[in-house]
Computed example of a mutant assay.
Amino acid sequence: MNRRTLLGTVATTGIVALTGCLSDGSGGGTPSDTATATDTPTPTPTPTFTDSDFEVLSTRGGTQVDSATVTVDGTDIVVEGTVWGRDGCRTAELASVNYNADELTVAVATTRRADAGEACTQGVVEIDYRATVEFDDAAPGTVVVTHDRGDGAETVVNTSP
C-alpha cells in the first residue's frame, strides 16, 4: 500500500471520530428524556349577571314604532330602542331582566307615568330608551328584547351579539 494513502485514511478516520466525541448533543437526534408539552384548554368564562340600568331618553308624538338594537360594551349588553305608547300619559319601564342558560331576556313595557294628570294627549307616542345589563367575565350568547304595551309581550330582537 502507498504510505501517503495510508496516512491520509488514518488522518481522516481520526478527525471523523473526534468530531463525534466533541459534539454537544444538540444535533439532529431526538433526546429520549425530553418531556412532551401538553396544551391545557383555557376554560370559557361564564357570564355572571350583576346589575341593570334603564333610562327613558325621550318621548314624542309619532307612530306605532317597535324597534331595538343590541350592542356589546366589554361584557355589558346595551339595548337602545323605541316602544310606542297609546297616549301621552305613557312611559317605558324595565319590566324584567332574566338570564338563564346563556340567554338574556330584556323586557320593556309601557306604563302610565306617575306624574300624569287626568288629561292626556290622545295621540300615539314614541318612547326612546336605553337599558344596560352588566355582566362579569363574559357577555351572554343570546339576547332577546321584548316590548309589552299592555296587550302581551312581542319579541323585537333575538340576536347573538
Rank of each mutant, 00 (worst) to 15 (best):
67 S>F: 10
43 P>Y: 00
57 L>V: 09
70 V>A: 02
61 G>K: 09
51 D>P: 02
52 S>V: 08
68 A>L: 02
59 T>A: 01
56 V>K: 03
64 Q>G: 03
68 A>C: 01
66 D>K: 04
71 T>Q: 11
74 G>D: 04
65 V>E: 08
72 V>C: 06
71 T>N: 00
72 V>E: 08
57 L>A: 05
74 G>H: 09
54 F>K: 04
48 T>N: 14
69 T>R: 08
65 V>Y: 04
70 V>D: 02
57 L>Q: 11
63 T>C: 06
47 P>R: 10
53 D>P: 03
65 V>R: 06
65 V>L: 08
57 L>D: 14
67 S>C: 00
59 T>K: 04
46 T>L: 12
47 P>C: 11
72 V>R: 03
52 S>K: 01
64 Q>A: 13
58 S>L: 14
47 P>Q: 13
67 S>L: 05
53 D>W: 05
47 P>H: 13
46 T>R: 05
47 P>S: 13
45 P>M: 10
63 T>G: 15
68 A>T: 03
67 S>G: 00
45 P>C: 12
66 D>H: 13
68 A>N: 06
64 Q>I: 01
55 E>F: 07
46 T>K: 12
48 T>S: 15
54 F>H: 06
57 L>W: 11
50 T>A: 15
66 D>R: 07
64 Q>N: 12
67 S>H: 05
60 R>Q: 14
56 V>W: 01
49 F>Q: 14
65 V>H: 04
73 D>A: 05
57 L>F: 00
67 S>D: 13
57 L>S: 11
70 V>I: 03
49 F>L: 15
69 T>Y: 02
62 G>T: 05
50 T>P: 13
52 S>G: 12
74 G>V: 00
69 T>G: 02
74 G>M: 07
48 T>R: 12
60 R>S: 11
70 V>Y: 08
55 E>M: 05
73 D>T: 05
67 S>R: 03
56 V>R: 03
51 D>R: 12
70 V>Q: 07
55 E>G: 07
63 T>W: 15
61 G>F: 14
53 D>I: 09
53 D>K: 04
56 V>I: 01
49 F>S: 14
70 V>T: 01
58 S>V: 10
48 T>G: 14
62 G>I: 00
64 Q>Y: 11
64 Q>R: 10
59 T>G: 04
